[in-house]
């Protein structure tokens, strides 16, 4: 396989990305939105604590910022990726692209990486805001890096789902709705179901302690739980206690999401071009 830098789709998308004002404005508003919220939160904290800086508060702020950024990324990624193939189909440029000798995997990966690259840019552009939080202490660089890595990882997984639905569904709008729906389930749905499962486990805890593996399985697929678990390891311990599974939750999350990622990419590559049905 050719190196990614030689990928024609990727090169073209990079070139075009910043030819329109849209992308510049995107970065501006993203940083602005996060910036306003962070400064607002600092302001509120200052008010409530009557001045003075508390590292515990700073840590809280970092968590909130991370969750906020995470939510924004999950919100933006489907919009950026769920149209990559279907919009080419709608604009009637896909047919021509598919008759070139470029491989399906090269097209899919080029499309995914080019959209994801823009999201990475957003994340990197927001890093200076984290430095405000750093100023007050309370968090380690390691934590920051972990959050950053989890963000990047999630962007790739959500992006791969977007690309997959974009390949399978003809209309961009339908592909986006589907991707948002699936993300809503992965973020909210699994969390909600995990809560229900938890309450069932607690209810039946009157006699001998029972465990419910479902709690673990649902939590494994839930990104917010994984994120919060980074700051509050007690959540992971609680889940391990209820489910009886002591395997680290974040590793299970990485494995399950890597599986989703690979499946989505493989299915997209297969679906992009029609099967010509090779007869034996």
């Amino acid at each position: 396989m050719k190196s990614w830098l030689m990928n024609p789709v990727l090169n073209k998308e990079f070139k075009l990305r910043f030819r329109s004002l849209k992308s510049f404005l995107g970065v501006l508003f993203y940083v602005l939105a996060i910036g306003i919220i962070v400064i607002g939160m600092i302001f509120v904290q200052q008010l409530s604590s009557m001045g003075g800086v508390n590292p515990e508060q700073s840590r809280e702020l970092f968590m909130m910022l991370s969750v906020l950024q995470f939510a924004l990324i999950i919100f933006i990624t489907p919009g950026l990726t769920a149209g990559v193939i279907s919009s080419e189909r709608e604009r009637q440029t896909l047919n021509i692209l598919l008759t070139t000798s470029q491989s399906s995997s090269s097209i899919i990966i080029g499309k995914l990486v080019s959209s994801v690259a823009f999201l990475l840019l957003l994340i990197i552009a927001s890093l200076p805001l984290y430095s405000i939080v750093f100023l007050y202490g309370g968090i380690s660089p390691r934590e920051l890096l972990t959050v950053f890595a989890l963000n990047v990882f999630t962007v790739f997984v959500v992006g791969s789902l977007g690309v997959m639905f974009s390949t399978f569904i003809r209309k961009t709008i339908a592909a986006m709705v589907t991707t948002y729906g699936v993300m809503l389930f992965l973020v909210g749905g699994t969390g909600f179901l995990a809560l229900i499962a938890t309450s069932f486990t607690q209810m039946s805890q009157t006699g001998t302690p029972t465990t419910n593996i479902l709690v673990y399985l649902l939590a494994m697929f839930n990104t917010p739980i994984t994120l919060v678990n980074l700051f509050q390891p007690s959540i992971g311990e609680e889940i391990a206690r209820m489910s009886g599974v002591s395997f680290p939750l974040w590793i299970a999350h990485l494995i399950s999401y890597t599986f989703i990622f690979i499946t989505a990419i493989v299915l997209s590559v297969r679906k992009l071009r029609p099967k010509m049905k090779a007869k034996k």
């Binding site: 073209k12 440029t93 047919n95």
Partner: peptide
């Protein structure tokens, strides 16, 4: 070399 009856082009290229 294939030229379809209807085709689109990319913007800003």
């Amino acid at each position: 070399g294939y030229m379809p009856d209807f085709f689109g082009v990319y913007d800003q290229l």
